[in-house]
Simulated assay, not measured.
Amino acid sequence: MKKKRSHRRKHSSEVNMGFQIAPMIDVVFVILLFFMVKAGDIQVENAHITKLPGTVPTDTATDMPDEIAVLVEDDGQVYLNEDPLDSPESKDLPQLTGNLAALQDSAEATKSKVLVTIYANELAKYSRVVDVLDALTRAKITNVTFQAGAPE
């Protein structure tokens, strides 16, 4: 008589297939193929030849504008190119305004620009910097930059 073999099905948790490397290699090759195809569509930026408007060579040297430094100290004292002007309590800054207006007038006469850099110390009050900006507005100076700390 034949013996019946009992075939017991293993549950899926009992089956250990191990790490399958073949599907991983297939995925890597598909991704590699995708990037190789996309790399052919990229245009090189230096292939575009553009000419910017207004780039005309000149024979004469261009004069750079004079830079004026305005320093605002912690105590409210304002310096124009290392010369103290007005008192720390003066809100209108008449000396600073007068000097800046004279500089602006001389710059207009020579057809040059006036650049003003405001150096404000770390503990200088914002209201004092606004006072300096008001003085620049009264002197009709529009080219203004800011820098924190003392000038180097």
Results as ranks from 00 to 15, higher is better:
residue 24 M to E: 02
residue 28 V to I: 12
residue 26 D to E: 08
residue 65 P to A: 14
residue 19 F to K: 10
residue 23 P to H: 11
residue 40 G to C: 04
residue 35 F to C: 03
residue 20 Q to V: 00
residue 36 M to P: 02
residue 69 A to M: 15
residue 66 D to W: 04
residue 37 V to A: 07
residue 37 V to S: 09
residue 59 D to P: 05
residue 85 L to M: 07
residue 38 K to M: 14
residue 68 I to W: 05
residue 50 T to K: 15
residue 90 S to F: 01
residue 36 M to E: 02
residue 88 P to I: 09
residue 28 V to E: 05
residue 77 Q to K: 15
residue 77 Q to N: 14
residue 44 V to S: 15
residue 28 V to R: 02
residue 32 L to A: 09
residue 73 E to H: 05
residue 35 F to S: 06
residue 90 S to T: 04
residue 73 E to V: 00
residue 50 T to I: 14
residue 70 V to I: 15
residue 42 I to N: 07
residue 58 T to P: 05
residue 22 A to S: 13
residue 54 G to D: 06
residue 46 N to G: 14
residue 32 L to M: 05
residue 59 D to Y: 02
residue 26 D to P: 01
residue 51 K to Y: 07
residue 56 V to Q: 10
residue 30 V to R: 04
residue 52 L to T: 15
residue 52 L to V: 15
residue 75 D to Q: 12
residue 32 L to N: 00
residue 80 L to C: 04
residue 33 L to C: 00
residue 89 E to F: 13
residue 60 T to L: 07
residue 66 D to Y: 10
residue 39 A to Q: 15
residue 28 V to C: 05
residue 79 Y to I: 10
residue 61 A to V: 00
residue 74 D to S: 06
residue 83 D to M: 03
residue 49 I to L: 15
residue 40 G to M: 13
residue 48 H to K: 13
residue 60 T to F: 01
residue 50 T to F: 14
residue 45 E to W: 07
residue 18 G to Q: 09
